[in-house]
Amino acid sequence: MAKQYSEVVFEGHHGNIRGFIEGFIAGSGKEMSFFFSDRAGVKAETISDIIKEWISLSNKIHHVIMESELLNSIKKSLENLDESDVLSRPSIKSVKAIKAASFRFKFATYGKKYGDEIKNLLDKLPGGLSMKDYAPVEKVNEDAKGVELYSPAHDYSFEGSGVITGPVDEAIAFRKALDDHPLVDVTVIDLEF
């Protein structure tokens, strides 16, 4: 069964939050995953949120995607902590369960070698994810082979775009794989709650 993930908004210092979560996982001895939204390419804050944060001069807000088991354990342990137990403990501002995640991608390449690379990448779409609005166009135009000065036209082109939807952890991993290819552009991941 797929893991359930939530978007957890922490208030506090980034290093403290990261250290707290990583230490918590290490101490639990279990394998649990989490992602900071800004590093994983997940859309987290609207411009108005950012402005509000600046105006209030409050501590930095951090959006963390974490699996439910980890979230529940952290919540429980935070409840059991006294104010004096830690110097600066992170506080949880909100929690939202994630139903699905999605992002758009697009690419355009003019070399067969790179077209094949992108096809291979998309063929490896993880089982939990689905792809929609994908109608790639591959053209081979032998007339345009060679170098041109004034009438540039490529003898090969492969262009396409689409939307990937599915569980957030798989979406984050697949988005990174696509983003690592220099000819593929990806948008940030939108979360559905």
Partner: peptide
């Protein structure tokens, strides 16, 4: 040559 260089670069996988 600008277009020629652009075209060769694109066919070499440069966006």
């Amino acid at each position: 040559p600008n277009f020629m260089v652009k075209s060769i670069a694109e066919e070499s996988g440069i966006a």
